[in-house]
Amino acid sequence: MPKTLFGAAILAGAMTLSLPAFAHITLETQQAAVGSTYKAVLRVPHGCDGAATTAIKVQIPEGVIAVKPMPKAGWTLTTTKGKYARGYSYYGEAVSEGVTELSWAGGTLPDEFYDEFVFRAFLTDSLEAGKKLYFPVVQQCGDKAERWIDIPADGKDADDYETPAPGLKLTPKN
């Protein structure tokens, strides 16, 4: 048992070191297998240049279905539904439409506080393992906005952008 503990410690350490800068809006879990359910925790470390955050909007990428956001006290949660580009199978059931956007609005998250916004989703196996999956986020602060929507072009990574979209690495199906 202590051996497991030690291994866990090393794993935790490795994860801590591989974390990107906390400057941006990021996902807490940065790796997930295709064909699995993923709990996305969006970490919001600051407002827009000092202004308090008043809304968080998330775009759901193609291939991500069965999205269920977690309600948050003080925030009005809405979803936008739309047709998917193709049909998917979710536990044997055909799915062709669903949530494409999430929005937590009407709250106030001052710049000096930290908060998390959570949703659950299924990563279909139409997604390509080995690639990164991005959830573009718009952080609204009153009439100002920070758009964490840059999806790195081929050959670049998130560090090359000032406002990269939060992403996770897709691993092969378990």
Partner: peptide, 10 residues
Amino acid sequence: APTTALAHAG
């Protein structure tokens, strides 16, 4: 970490 590594200066 969040207290030590903040944003790019805006």
